[in-house]
């Protein structure tokens, strides 16, 4: 597939094609998250977290799924355990989150060391930023846990991971990326699409399930 003249022009200005692809894919992923919220009814942690995790997963490639999911899960589990341990100390919110972040950082370091000892350096080899992104979702998680309880927070975490996985599947699909690079203007379509989503007042798919008993009434 040929690059479009626009793409060619941008690449000629010394913008790496990789960077350009990522910037063009971000609106797509964000639209995906808003679609999941408004039409399907999957809430997740807002729009930032699923989007950023999608790109974190991409950065873990070639083992994106394996490492990404493992790290996501361990961050959540360690975050939960830490909260449980810290509860009795009755700390204020920010210091408590700071301690949780520290514990997770140490754990990640531990995981990297253990992986290295078993000659699994794939994880240690990746850039630190996707790892840091994964760690900082803890704050979202802890805040939600405090607000809505552990069960609800876990559900939202799972939903976040779900949306990120769909996003990951889309942007790690070579044909799709090539398509975007060939026709970059198609990304602009996300704006009218989001306008439609923003005006959408129909029931969400999950609401059909939630209100099934009401809908069944004659």
């Amino acid at each position: 597939m040929e690059f479009s003249p626009i793409t060619q022009f941008i690449v000629d200005q010394n913008v790496p094609a990789q960077t350009m692809a990522l910037l063009l894919l971000l609106p797509v992923v964000a639209t995906l998250a808003s679609f999941f919220r408004q039409v399907v009814g999957i809430k997740a942690f807002g729009i930032y977290t699923p989007s950023i995790i999608t790109f974190a997963l991409l950065a873990f490639d070639p083992n994106g799924l394996k490492y990404g999911i493992a790290i996501f899960a361990s961050v959540i589990v360690i975050g939960m355990v830490t909260r449980y341990v810290l509860r009795r100390f009755r700390l204020l919110y920010l210091p408590r989150v700071a301690i949780t972040l520290s514990v997770i950082s140490f754990s990640m370091l531990g995981i990297l060391v253990i992986g290295g000892a078993y000659h699994r350096t794939g994880l240690a080899g990746v850039s630190i930023f996707p790892l840091l992104i994964m760690i900082t979702i803890t704050e979202k998680f802890v805040a939600l846990q405090l607000e809505k309880g552990t069960q609800a927070a876990l559900l939202l975490a799972a939903e976040t991971l779900g949306i990120s996985l769909v996003g990951y599947a889309l942007i790690s699909w070579p044909s799709f990326v090539l398509f975007i690079l060939a026709y970059p203007w198609t990304v602009l379509l996300t704006i009218p699409l989001n306008v439609l989503l923003g005006k959408w007042t129909g029931l969400r798919l999950t609401e059909y399930v939630r209100f099934l008993n009401v809908l069944r009434q004659k």
């Binding site: 029931l203 969400r204 609401e207 059909y208 099934l212 009401v214 809908l215 069944r216 004659k218």
Partner: peptide, 14 residues
Amino acid sequence: ELLRNSREVLGMNA
């Protein structure tokens, strides 16, 4: 019936 009744139900979006 479900679809018709869905016009009676208020969802989060609406």
